[in-house]
Write a protein that binds this DNA or RNA. Sequence first.
DNA 1: AATAAAAGCTAACAATCGTTAGGAGGAAAT
DNA 2: ATTTCCTCCTAACGATTGTTAGCTTTTATT
Lengths: 197, 197
Amino acid sequence: MAKIKSNRTSTRKDVIISKAAILFREKGYSATSMRDLAEHVGVEAASLYNHISSKAEILQEICFRVATNFMTHIEEVEQSKKSEIEKIEAILRYHIKMMIERYEEVYVSDREWKHLTDPYLSNMQGQRRAYRQRIGKIIEDGIQKGEIKKIDAPTAVLIMLHAVSGIESWHRSKRKIEGDQLENSMVEILVGGLQKP
Amino acid sequence: MAKIKSNRTSTRKDVIISKAAILFREKGYSATSMRDLAEHVGVEAASLYNHISSKAEILQEICFRVATNFMTHIEEVEQSKKSEIEKIEAILRYHIKMMIERYEEVYVSDREWKHLTDPYLSNMQGQRRAYRQRIGKIIEDGIQKGEIKKIDAPTAVLIMLHAVSGIESWHRSKRKIEGDQLENSMVEILVGGLQKP
DNA sequence: AATAAAAGCTAACAATCGTTAGGAGGAAAT
DNA sequence: ATTTCCTCCTAACGATTGTTAGCTTTTATT
């Protein structure tokens, strides 16, 4: 018998979920089988069901944990006394940090949420839309205050959020560049643009 | 009996592939079944195999058609007499146009290529890496000529390419903004940045 | 009108899927 | 020492997966 390792800080369920996040990222939710997951956890497939109620529940946990994190953070930023461009930069930096430090979950949450089923699917769609609109609002405020160029705010949001998900390639290639450096480069390019002034 | 419609320009195989692209985008490659696809084509699942040899082949066709398109285009751009920043802009505009006009294929090619199997998987990984490096080279040339800011070129490539895939949300939301406008906004933001000079 | 080729059908295959039932072994609580 | 709970196991279920075989029907060619 091979029990799932459990320290004080992480329950057996947490172990399953974090292993699942790795597999979901590598192969996608649908292409990952419960027997696959079980093997990586070191247990038979049926044993997983002592800790989770379904495969769908695992995806739900991953997606909503991440979504809650971002929602909490954007609220803090909104209530801070930063300028609008600083708020955008703070949000950007948070996304990059999350993508670097909690790569698996964040990536899965971003790419696999479509496989949620309905009460959760609608909820997630709503949260994502709301999140984008809140960033859009900050950008529009920034434009009105003259801090930010007169650009199409929803397009800017879309670029910001998707640019960050490119960190995936960074994770794969493991170039010499450090995480902090990556963060600064990304912020510089997105905030400052490519062209020399 | 319901035969697959075929005009002069598109074979039955093409019809299957383009329907498959729609489904692969909506639900992902793994979550799309051959019976699913058959239903949307208007035929029984087994009948598909008179036109294609496997599910995998469909994904291969989609991915390599798109990859070839981008490869051909970047070669044209490289050999043109544009400045480096203009080359980057041309590549960017091509990506945006492709993402708008041939959404399904391009999106699937970008997100589902991981499900290719091995001679094709390695080939695609190689092509993607080569493509990124060629863009990176243009950026580095641009930096050396003083046209482009001193930024980390691979990071800039990563941002460019992933920003474009954000057009997905544009497709879904169908905002009032037109394709041309979207293209211009994206180029302006990526080339010029958010911040007011 | 006869024939060949193309494209459809039904039925079925082996494999794999998520999940459940029922029981065994070990740890914690009594 | 006995009971209770937790975790794991084996075995199996019904459903679905991609695909093949064999036959029929439609379309194209002669």
